[in-house]
Design a protein around this nucleic acid. Structure first.
Lengths: 339, 339
DNA sequence: AGTTCTTTTGCAATCGATTGCTATTTTTGT
DNA sequence: ACAAAAATAGCAATCGATTGCAAAAGAACT
């Protein structure tokens, strides 16, 4: 009472056992609804537990059973020290992951890490709290992830897949996506393209490479790449600087993410440059907001929901000891208004 | 080896103790860097642990110390069964919370709950896994939260505060926010207002009430309220229906969230209705995207980052056994282009 | 040398639930 | 009515780290 607890609260299985006049083991089995204990006793104990609001201590349970029911979700922020965890893409993927996991009764633990050494992921998977881990984005930590993947099976990574990698990845074919975006701009008649994005991680590097491939067939076309951070406050000023730099020398911009595209369009709009008439802009991701903006964004769709499902499914199989291969999804060009 | 583990892996403190030629207790103390054990022994043990990549089992540690280092983050989806966890406002707040918590070394467990009974929150706080819990949004579950708050101290809720409530809330003065938005529309000369939002939870109900107060002083003005869900697919069609219903009978719309405002503006744009010239629109939240859209959104700012800080700080104090009062932040009208 | 005070380490209980094994009771079959 | 089989319950070890208390070793002092 005075300590704010429910009155007469039961603290552990032993107390409930005493109350029910049985042994602790029986209570444990009753609460787990095992047929090993008599139906009547079982129901009596369950009723008692409900009455007193008793729930077995998860820590003890997990220690004993050696499994946690907890999946770790890790966001490595290697080359983007200032990138906020609240980045919409991460959050959207994370939201879908959360939906998938909680629906199947798993708990979910989030860690944001700024890799300071090469052991950041080891620390997480060795903490003994996790049944498995999902890594959102490779950042520039592909090798660190690869090393852990060699000894820790229940690990699934969102990102680019490349030959010979041990890690199980789920992601879109980023090169194909870059190709799609650039090709669309070329098809509209654009000749002087720019690419806005930070190519330190494999994913965005692949997107740039894809865009370059698209240009390969068409002479008289150019593509200039501009490193662009995702940290949203810097992003705007960087983009403004890029546009200054480009001047009128651009008629199509491949942005590495919808957020970059959104900001780019805003700045173009401020400067009175019509999108898509003077400059066409493509995004990447197809976040929900890309269809709510004006103009609606032409973008390369990653099916984030399907990706989340694939990640969780692969993880589930790996936890069960099976082997699950990487998934490479095909990106899709979504034609809207901006390009 | 063959089971995919690192070679020669140490499984627990006892093994490491044997290896170091000391007792388990000493290893435990050494790893915790307690001055109780000789500096040399301590360093020798730490080096050994590093060499073998050993980290003490968290489950055992937490069972013994009776604390988990884990904060639960709960999103109750009471009246919005279909609202997705990936809703931008929740995700933004959640992102900031995650930043705050992980920065201070806490882990974070996410539960999305669709309250099926009145025990959903009990189940979470009694699970024995949490040092404390943060609830994002009251939904229509204020009473259930209130009941739990009476016996479970380390609980902080994002939402509206009202007199006599035991629960510790952090949030903006929603009525004041609603007043601000409506007043802005009146100041622009709008006379026939509409309110888009679902008033089943206290937060949005307060916003509507505030808007109504603003009208009170001005005769000849009207305000019609339209229930509008947040589940994004339904939202668009609902809003379209509202606008059909209103016809030309509206020159200002108070939207209960930025997302609703964004969608409303899109639909108005599709119908060739100029914003803000024919109809002015205000949002609520000031999500990052509201300054990236075209037109930029005039909205009522909730300082989500500050809110997250306040929530974590209050929770920290409550975990330490102190008492922390509710925080009511003042909303701020952000004038941009849409109203 | 003998005593007292520190420093360092080990011992063993503890956190709370689970589960293999054994003991007891009840049911079934002959 | 007796043996065999099945159902039910209890006992006690176990998961792995932590920590109060006691013991041992060493230092300092008279």
């Amino acid at each position: 009472m005075e300590d704010g607890k429910k009155p007469g609260k039961i603290r552990n299985i032993a107390e409930l056992a005493r109350l029910a006049g049985v042994s602790a083991g029986t209570v444990s089995r009753a609460l787990a609804d095992k047929s090993l204990v008599n139906k009547e006793t079982r129901e009596r104990i369950q009723a008692l537990a409900r009455e007193y609001g008793f729930r077995p201590n998860q820590m003890a349970r997990r220690l004993r059973t050696q499994q946690t029911g907890v999946i770790g979700v890790v966001i490595p922020l290697g080359h983007e020290r200032r990138q906020h965890i609240s980045d919409p893409f991460f959050m959207t993927l994370f939201g879908y992951l959360a939906d998938e996991l909680t629906e199947s009764g798993q708990d979910l633990m989030l860690s944001r890490v700024i890799p300071g050494d090469d052991e950041w992921l080891d620390r997480i998977v060795d903490s003994g709290m996790l049944d498995g881990a999902l890594v959102i984005g490779q950042s520039n930590q592909t090798e660190a992830i690869e090393r852990v993947a060699q000894y820790y099976k229940p690990l699934v990574v969102w990102g680019s897949h490349s030959e010979g990698q041990v890690q199980c990845t789920v992601g879109v074919d980023n090169a194909a996506g870059g190709r799609l975006a650039a090709q669309r701009l070329l098809d509209r008649g654009a000749k002087r393209l720019a690419f806005f994005g930070d190519t330190k991680g494999p994913e965005i590097a692949d997107r740039l490479a894809g865009a370059q491939q698209a240009l390969a067939g068409s002479p008289q076309t150019t593509l200039r790449a501009f490193p662009t951070h995702l940290a949203s406050d810097e992003m705007a000023s960087q983009i403004a600087a890029h546009l200054d730099d480009l001047g009128a020398e651009v008629d199509g911009i491949v942005c590495a993410s919808d957020i970059i595209a959104m900001t780019t369009i805003r700045i173009l709009h401020e400067r009175g440059i019509a999108v898509p008439d003077r400059v066409a802009v493509t995004g990447f991701d197809d976040l929900p907001l890309s269809q709510r903006m004006v103009p609606q964004l032409t973008t390369v769709r990653q099916d984030i929901a399907a990706g989340a499902r694939a990640m969780v499914e692969a993880l589930r199989r790996r936890i069960a000891g099976e082997d699950a291969p990487s998934t490479v999804m095909q990106p899709e060009l979504i034609l809207r208004e901006s390009a």
